[in-house]
Design a protein around this nucleic acid. Structure first.
Length: 98
DNA sequence: AGGGTGACCCGCT
DNA sequence: CAGCGGGCCACCC
């Protein structure tokens, strides 16, 4: 029995509910979405459809890095810092627990 | 309309 | 340490 909703919908809901100043890893989001192995799709969706209102910059890799970004990883880091997220010089998320 | 590949990845061997 | 498979979406031809 299928829920009917596509992965994008689930991902959208999860990511959109990320509190400000908090970051989630792709795997975490994917896990909540139902398939932890679909982590690639997340990036793909956001990359092709940088949905407005979706704080995709709050989604980072499990390694603690910010990962990639359609508009540029640097931009992503800057954005996170503006939200209050501490980021190391190497672009590592400080205070991120996987 | 259909097939094939890329993509902001992760975990295992 | 390096390499690859895995599942889902959108775009290209």
């Amino acid at each position: 029995m299928k829920v009917g909703k596509t992965f994008q919908e689930k991902i959208y809901q999860v990511v959109a509910k990320i509190p400000k100043g908090r970051v989630l890893s792709y795997k975490e989001v994917a896990r909540r979405g139902g398939n932890a192995q679909a982590c690639r799709v997340e990036g793909n969706i956001m990359n092709r459809h940088n949905i407005k209102g979706l704080p995709c910059h709050r989604v980072i890799r499990s390694d603690g890095r910010v990962g990639g970004y359609k508009w540029g990883t640097k931009k992503k880091i800057k954005r996170l810092q503006a939200e209050g997220v501490k980021i190391s010089k190497d672009g590592k998320i400080i205070g991120f627990k996987r």
